[in-house]
Computed example of a mutant assay.
Amino acid sequence: MRRTTSHRNFFPTNSGGSSAISASGSSESPPPPDDESTKKVRKTGIAKVVAENSIVIVAVLGCFMCVTVNGLMQKLGVNPKIVEVKEAEKTATLVQLAKIEDGSGGPWELPAVYIGGKLLGGVDKVMETHLNGEFVPMLRAAGAIWL
């Protein structure tokens, strides 16, 4: 005959079976969310990050060009928000980024650099605007640098 008891958290458990409360009194961690709930968070997450941060770099994890763009910004005194995605998630991320641009297209490749919530472009556009002397004024206008 099994006896039901209540622990501190008032959830009944069977005394003969395993309990969610360990011997030390701490509960086990909940299982990680399934892939579907993670994808739903990401769908709204990138758009939210772009809207809330003055400088955002959406990059592929370990991409050399992404590191180069970040390095340039760091040397200019900018601390951009970096959203790194895995190579397998790259296409889905590009589709999400295209939705941010309200039908005017989106980035075709990563890294995608957003300044003040607007898409600047990839590494080629960042380097072009920097060499033309337009990059630092853009960063100032977005409030990323002060000098």
Score class of each variant (00 low, 15 high):
Phe10Val: 05
Phe11Ala: 02
Pro12Asn: 09
Thr13Pro: 02
Thr13Asp: 08
Asn14Thr: 02
Ser15Gly: 11
Ser15Met: 10
Ser15Ala: 14
Ser18Thr: 14
Ser18Gln: 12
Ser19Ala: 06
Ser19Cys: 05
Ser19Gln: 03
Ala20Arg: 06
Ala20Gln: 05
Ile21Ala: 10
Ile21Tyr: 10
Ile21Thr: 14
Ser22Trp: 04
Ser22Val: 02
Ala23Thr: 08
Ala23Val: 04
Gly25Ile: 10
Ser26Gly: 05
Ser27Pro: 03
Ser29Asp: 03
Ser29His: 00
Ser29Cys: 03
Ser29Pro: 01
Ser29Tyr: 00
Ser29Gln: 04
Pro30Tyr: 01
Pro30Arg: 05
Pro31Leu: 08
Pro31Gln: 11
Pro31Asn: 12
Pro32Gly: 06
Pro32Tyr: 02
Pro32Glu: 07
Pro32Ser: 08
Pro32Asp: 06
Pro33Glu: 11
Pro33Trp: 11
Pro33Ala: 10
Pro33Gly: 10
Asp34Leu: 08
Asp34Gln: 09
Asp34Lys: 10
Asp35Ile: 07
Glu36Phe: 13
Glu36Leu: 12
Glu36Ala: 11
Glu36Val: 13
Ser37Asn: 13
Thr38Asp: 13
Thr38Gln: 13
Lys39Gly: 06
Lys40Trp: 09
Lys40Ser: 12
Val41Leu: 11
Val41Thr: 13
Val41Asn: 12
Lys43Ala: 14
Lys43Phe: 10
Thr44Asp: 15
Thr44Arg: 11
Thr44Tyr: 11
Ile46Trp: 01
Ile46Gln: 00
Ile46Tyr: 00
Ile46Met: 03
Ala47Gln: 15
Lys48Leu: 14
Lys48Thr: 15
Lys48Ala: 15
Val49Arg: 04
Val50Phe: 03
Ala51Arg: 12
Glu52Asn: 14
Asn53Arg: 01
Asn53Ile: 02
Asn53His: 06
Asn53Cys: 01
Asn53Met: 01
Ile55Asp: 01
Ile55Trp: 00
Ile55Pro: 01
Ile55Gly: 01
Val56Glu: 02
Val56His: 02
Ile57Arg: 07
Val58Pro: 06
Val58Glu: 06
Ala59Asp: 12
Val60His: 06
Val60Ser: 12
Val60Glu: 12
Val60Pro: 03
Leu61Ser: 15
Leu61Phe: 13
Leu61Thr: 15
Gly62Asn: 14
Gly62Lys: 11
Cys63Gly: 12
Phe64Lys: 07
Phe64His: 07
Phe64Asn: 03
Phe64Val: 08
Cys66Pro: 06
Cys66Gly: 15
Cys66Ser: 15
Val67Ser: 14
Asn70Gln: 08
Gly71Ser: 13
Gly71Val: 05
Leu72Pro: 03
Leu72Ala: 10
Leu72Ser: 09
Met73Trp: 02
Gln74His: 15
Gln74Gly: 07
Lys75Met: 09
Lys75Trp: 04
Leu76Cys: 04
Leu76Asp: 04
Gly77Arg: 08
Gly77Cys: 12
Val78Gly: 01
Asn79Gly: 14
Pro80His: 04
Pro80Met: 04
Lys81Phe: 11
Lys81Gln: 15
Lys81Val: 08
Ile82Tyr: 08
Ile82Phe: 06
Ile82Leu: 09
Val83Ala: 01
Val83Thr: 02
Glu84Gly: 00
Val85Glu: 13
Val85Met: 13
